[in-house]
């Protein structure tokens, strides 16, 4: 069983590594953007699905990381990778700050607070156009000057793997238990000795840091930044990705992001209908398959598999 899983993983890794040679430049670009969204959806899932800290301000950290990285490179002539790192760190620090000031706020209040924070930041980026370029956009120095996007692809893949590994390590350690305890009942968790304050700030910092990292990568890849990346509609797209895939599992959120981004592309000719469709899918998933479509599909697969094939662990879970 272990060997099979390793073989699957190796196969997946081989496909991921060979991807740039299998597709044309267009699908490569789509793949890079899909991984950008996957990092955001996964870190949102860490914050919301695992730790129960409901945030509608996640795109604000993407935009913060992106603008900070671009401006640092422009002002201080830092090398682009250093700028990206500093941008991500800044998003992390601001994320910790937001986590700190929000310690007394929960549930829908937190959702409203973070949404307001995100809108304020977007308005500031739009208004301070002498610094940010406003709606005309901020030109960002590229990370690579090569004609092909393959280097960007490998960077995005690396960032996705690293961020997933860090987040997975977190949720599978004792910390993961603490997160869940806080999600289910904060008072009870505190009474049981979980350092609620520390872990709430920590999860905000980590999730925001990865969102900022995704943003810091996005700027140099696209070459131009506009405050729109922090808009409520963009947040809606990310929420749809995570929920459709399954917002209680990092892997499900990633798969949700990859498939929704592919769908966004496949339906490009249908312009206005795309967000209608994702809104509807989000509603149907929430209403009828709350753990996401991936969990639903997985259940179907399992139901069709003879019981003897299942590992003892799976049988246990099924019961």
């Amino acid at each position: 069983m272990r060997a099979l899983r390793l073989a699957c993983l190796a196969g997946l890794a081989a496909i991921a590594l060979a991807f740039p040679h299998l597709v044309n430049a267009y699908w490569l670009t789509v793949g890079i953007l899909a991984m950008f969204y996957a990092i955001i959806a996964a870190s949102w899932t860490l914050l919301v699905g695992y730790a129960g800290q409901f945030s509608f301000g996640h795109m604000a950290f993407v935009s913060l990381g992106a603008y900070a990285a671009a401006l640092l490179v422009q002002w201080l002539a830092l090398p682009v990778p250093i700028g990206m790192l500093v941008g991500a760190l800044l998003a992390m620090v601001v994320g910790a700050g937001v986590g700190f000031v929000c310690l007394r706020i929960r549930g829908p209040y937190l959702a409203i607070f973070t949404m307001a924070f995100s809108e304020v930041l977007r308005i500031v980026f739009l208004t301070e156009n002498e610094i940010t370029g406003g709606a005309s956009g901020l030109n960002v120095a590229p990370l690579f000057t090569s004609r092909s996007n393959a280097p960007y692809y490998y960077v995005a893949l690396g960032l996705l793997v690293v961020s997933l590994a860090v987040m997975a390590a977190m949720v599978h350690s004792r910390w993961g238990l603490f997160f869940r305890a806080i999600r289910e009942n904060e008072q009870a968790a505190a009474a049981a000795g979980v350092k609620v304050v520390r872990f709430r700030i920590l999860v905000f910092a980590v999730a925001s840091g990865f969102a900022g990292l995704a943003g810091a990568f996005y700027g140099p890849f696209i070459g131009i930044l506009t405050p729109d990346i922090g808009s409520v509609d963009q947040m809606g797209l990310v929420v749809a990705m995570a929920v459709i895939g399954g917002s209680e599992s990092l892997v499900a959120a990633v798969i949700g992001a990859l498939s929704v981004e592919a769908l966004v592309e496949a339906l490009r000719a249908y312009g206005q209908w795309r967000l209608v469709l994702f809104g509807l899918l989000l509603l149907l998933t929430m209403r009828f398959a709350r753990n996401g479509l991936l969990a639903l599909a997985w259940e179907q697969v399992r139901r069709l598999t003879p019981a003897s094939w299942r590992t003892p662990h799976a049988r246990e879970a099924a019961e």
């Binding site: 953007l33 696209i222 070459g223 729109d228 990346i229 490009r268 000719a269 249908y270 312009g271 206005q272």
Partner: peptide, 10 residues
Amino acid sequence: VYADTRGMPA
């Protein structure tokens, strides 16, 4: 072939 950009550079 008509391609929607949603008004966003990316």
